[in-house]
Design a protein around this nucleic acid. Structure first.
Lengths: 287, 287
DNA sequence: CCCTGTCATACCTGGTGGGTATCACTGACG
DNA sequence: CGTCAGTGATACCCACCAGGTATGACAGGG
């Protein structure tokens, strides 16, 4: 009896994330009692206690935490299988565009490298069609894991390359982007200590998974907003060197001496067997 | 409608591997008609043609091949989730042995490195109990993928490290193990060309996934058998250098000049978060 | 031309996933 | 200290569908 249906796994993930049967059931679009029963059956079948039902709420046991982590990977693998299968099938029998790669990139990342890559790949003899899929901060990892993308440009150490194959493409230092008139902008270089917790220039907050982290900085959701707020002297930002490409006249870039370098990788799922993907990776490695 | 139940995936995998509904149904312990229907429903739901039903047999479409590959990974991830959850739960609530790592090793691999690793780890302050799980050729990868093991010693280039995190532990050359009396045993070194297709010393065949590859050599399933057959002058073998440890008086080891070196890695699933595992890896890296 | 092997169709049934109503329990609050 | 709100568990019911059996359609081989 070591079977685990996708449906049950979804149920458990919902409960494990909400830590509340009612809300989890609502999120799943079902009533609470069947959900309770399903989780009980699951625990009985696996012969494992997954949740600690304290009165007033639910908490995860050790085994529950393991299943939360491993189950996420399993669910991602399953939805990835579906997505990639549909794409492979697509207009398949109708002889449609079978050769197509989805490349996930960070919207805020350097266009220069991407442009070079796309140009270099386009002249390859067996070039597939590349669909560029821009995403938010750290979303590339997720897109690669759940099959929305076939290959991604990722930025270590922000993105985790764990579980992917990858090639290093580019290493660059980081710069602080400051309002041109700010006192700090006069420095030739800065250290991280210099720019942390400056009251008049709080770091802006990007949404991650739809919610904003707490903090004093303004909430933003695109690069233009950020550029404008910096120009207005309301905030500052830390970016890889290549961000100089989009600076305004009202901005000043100051190199950071002690920030870790940003390494851009091209990454892909480890068992990919597509010729088109292999070509793209070869092209990238030769840049 | 992008859902895919584990059960359906199992069904598809069976059909895709057998390429025959009747045999697949038998393997699944069910009748053929429901299986046919399930696959049809799956194809309709995904809106993808997975199988080409030629009269006289079945073949995979492109999309079917994708699902076979991705689905294997998804199923492995699911069973891994179950296995690791059960292990984490185990005698959990009863306060039993929660700290336990399963280490997959090749039965035929060098005991020297393994011994050093286990000894070094045993003295760690937070050392978990290590269960050594010996497996056949290239089985480590499978065991790590489907959760039977938490960590493994693998041997590149034989094992694929794709999708795992790993650390290099040891690089060694390869030797030919010959009957002491054989003419070739007199050489100081040999090349791969020297020892390929020698009529009186055909390479022995190990089972892989329960079946033996075709060839002239004897079928064996353990190292002692192999040692005996070499001693009897019936076969020869190619092994990493550390195999010298178990040679008999009737054996002669001759270095191979042009065989690729064997690199032993310690490998683990990329998203592991166990403290015990981290300790073992740290210990291994310091050997 | 029939027989065999293959997958698809038709139909039936039992198990079960899901719904509603309700219970049992606990902590908060007047 | 009684009441109430909020939680998860239980009881019961129904519809749906997974799976079985019987059979059909169709191709290839003797």
């Amino acid at each position: 009896m070591d079977t685990l249906e996708t449906r049950e796994l979804k149920y458990f993930m919902a409960v494990a994330e909400e830590l509340h049967f009612g809300r989890a059931a609502e999120r799943l679009g079902m009533a609470q009692p069947p959900l309770s029963r399903a989780i009980q059956q699951l625990e009985r079948r696996l012969d494992v206690c997954l949740l600690e039902r304290n009165r007033r709420g639910v908490s995860l046991t050790g085994a529950g935490e393991v299943l939360l982590r491993e189950g996420r990977a399993a669910l991602d693998a399953t939805t990835a299988a579906v997505r990639r299968t549909r794409r492979a099938g697509g207009t398949d029998s109708a002889g449609g565009h079978r050769n197509r790669l989805v490349l996930a990139v960070k919207a805020a990342a350097s266009h220069e490298l991407l442009q070079k890559l796309l140009d270099a790949y386009a002249v390859e003899p067996d070039a597939a069609e590349i669909e560029v899929l821009p995403g938010g901060t750290c979303e590339q990892e997720e897109m690669l894991r759940d099959g929305r993308a076939d290959v991604a440009l990722m930025h270590s150490p922000y993105d985790s390359l764990a579980g992917f194959d990858s090639e290093e493409l580019l290493t660059e230092g980081q710069i602080a982007i400051l309002p041109a008139g700010h006192p700090l902008a006069a420095h030739k270089t800065l250290s991280l200590a210099d720019i942390s917790d400056i009251p008049d220039l709080p770091l802006a907050r990007w949404p991650r998974h739809g919610t904003y982290p707490p903090g004093p900085g303004p909430e933003i959701h695109d690069q233009t907003q950020l550029a404008q707020l910096i120009a207005l002297g309301r905030t500052m930002a830390v970016f890889p060197d290549s961000a100089r490409a989009w600076l305004w006249a009202e901005h000043t870039a100051v190199p950071l001496t002690d920030a870790h370098p940003i390494v851009t990788h091209i990454a892909w799922p480890p068992h990919s067997r597509s010729l088109a993907l292999a070509g793209l990776i070869r092209t990238a490695a030769q840049l």
